[in-house]
Design a binder for these strands. Structure first.
Lengths: 331, 331
DNA sequence: GCTCCGAGTGTAATCGATTACAAAATGATG
DNA sequence: CATCATTTTGTAATCGATTACACTCGGAGC
């Protein structure tokens, strides 16, 4: 493995000059530069980033933590994140924690040990306590979640409004017994959407019933239990809002195999807008989130924070809302 | 940011001793060790990995390159890969190239610049030429593909046998006009499956027709065109094998929206065994690949190669076959 | 009491780059 | 041609860890 020293010797210059050539320092004389470049090519030299990173005290690497990978929702966010990292010549490590807390620690350790310069937490990959512990020392962006009072940029959609719009649409169709299958009840996106849901109900004069809301993970059995739990209380359902396309697809599956006692033509609106909503039968009406952009923007904002380290003050913090829209399909 | 030097000063020992404590060197006297550990905790010291990496000339990082992320197929492989990396205390960078060659270069550069110690190429994320260029200098594992003559471990299923079995099943059901929608025709998994397909046809005395085979990417329009291309030649189809669950789901979608002129009850067998095959309507019969294990094993093998650098000789190279199985569903 | 040995610790080189500062080369000017 | 300003290049410190080697110190053996 050739080092800068060998290149310097071969080119008959000092390591400093080679370094300057590598970094495009305009002070080097063109002739020297060419000579060095020739040697670099001849020797097939590549700078050792480990050395560079140490010297510069910067890894040019960030981390994005996802709850899981098995939902296309996250893949799309990750895709945007990778693009943003690439565009800014940063490396990005995308990690999933699969609800194992100790795995989260490995990613946070990358921050603590200088391997990573900043981190994006997507969805409920982190809780508020941990966040408060980290927010003063490290550069953090939250993607699709919003914790007021946290010293971190948050990138998300207007979940309250989206929840409102979804509910409104079902009401418009004549639904008045609308169930809500949520995700993790502690997540801010969930509570915001429910606020919108309540508001729409109120506006329509439909009484709000908390027992029409049930949380479920993105697993078939969870979703089935959640829906059947509501039905089991003797509550009629003529419309459903789900937290994700995946949940909605599971409901369709349950209806079809008759493990969920709902009519095939139930009005249903899901969140996310992944391709899943298009390949089910019937296809699913969804609130489309700008997933790619959410990922892209999160990373972009994080990198801005890293670069503007000088502009210390937390003026830039806050909430960034990206637009969503509804796509009406068969459900 | 506290460094080892400050810890040493605070604990009244040399940096060497602190380093020994950090690395659990048994020579340090227990009393000293405790003293140092106390200071480390007090100062909330974390070793700087950038320095460690440089000194040890090892990043403990590997790369896994995926063609894309939007197929749950890849997510599942990535999940296994992450687990293997975690189990071996390696970092893993999972990157997708989205068929942009220049993005692939960034990942390969991580190898060349010492940021990564090895790489796993999944599916057709790399071509044979590039592979031949890299194989002598770097540690490489291929996942789900197999190039004979390449100095890299390959982890995959027995694609020929799987293709044979899928075809056989359709023949058993009485199909005799079996179309094959493949992926990238240059990939070894595709050609191996087709071999199996041919073999099963031959065995059943059904003539093989190359024009019943068409390649398609994992996009609705591609798949639709491929299928309609075969139909358009006037060739009847009473059975279909697809390269992926995703393709199969698109075919169902096309049938339903009548943009693909096939009966709803067409016999279809796809490859992969992702959750997609369960949420479609009808559900899809698939050859289930051990995706998680494919990812896990690939990374595990790579790390073994890295650790056994001493055992230079390429004795360990070769093909690792993991078992697959068929799950019969509604198609 | 002296030598020797091993346990425990410290000193300093090293990994491969960047960069402040010093020094040399170049060129302009009178 | 001497002087000085400006380019261009080189020297050496530095980032923060690891580790070969040297050293100290106490006790065992004679």
């Amino acid at each position: 493995m050739s080092s800068i020293k060998e290149v310097a010797k071969q080119a008959n210059v000092s390591v400093a000059t080679v370094s300057r050539v590598l970094n495009n320092d305009p002070v080097v004389k063109p002739a020297t530069k060419n000579k060095v470049l020739r040697v670099i090519k001849e020797m097939n030299y590549k700078p050792n980033m480990l050395a560079k990173n140490l010297r510069k005290q910067a890894s040019r690497t960030i981390v994005m933590v996802l709850p899981s990978m098995s939902n296309p929702y996250f893949s799309e966010i990750a895709r945007g994140a990778q693009a943003a990292a690439y565009d800014n010549a940063y490396n990005i490590i995308i990690g999933t924690i699969e609800s194992k807390r100790w795995i989260l620690d490995t990613y946070i350790n990358m921050l603590k040990t200088n391997l990573a310069e900043g981190i994006v937490f997507v969805s409920s990959s982190v809780n508020k306590e941990l966040l408060e512990e980290l927010m003063d020392e490290y550069k953090i962006v939250l993607c699709t979640e919003y914790y007021p009072g946290i010293n971190a940029t948050c990138v998300a959609i207007d979940n309250k409004r989206a929840g409102y719009e979804a509910t409104k649409e079902l009401i418009r169709r004549g639904c008045s017994h609308i169930a809500y299958i949520t995700g993790n009840r502690e997540s801010s996106s969930v509570t915001a959407r429910i606020e919108g849901y309540k508001e729409a109900l109120k506006e329509a004069g439909i009484p709000y019933r908390p027992d029409r809301i049930a949380g479920a993970k993105n697993r078939f059995d969870h979703v089935k239990e959640a829906v059947n739990g509501i039905i089991g209380q003797g509550l009629p359902i003529d419309g459903i809002i789900t937290h994700s396309d995946l949940q909605a697809s599971y409901i369709l599956k349950g209806i079809k195999e008759k493990s969920i006692a709902l009519p095939e033509r139930v009005g249903m609106i899901s969140f996310d807008g992944t391709f899943l909503a298009e390949i089910t039968n019937p296809t699913i009406t969804t609130i489309v989130q700008p997933l790619y952009d959410l990922g892209y923007t999160s990373v972009h904002k994080l990198i801005l924070k890293l670069v503007n380290e000088s502009a210390e003050a937390g003026e830039e913090e806050g909430l960034v809302l990206l637009p969503h829209h509804m796509v009406i399909r068969e459900t």
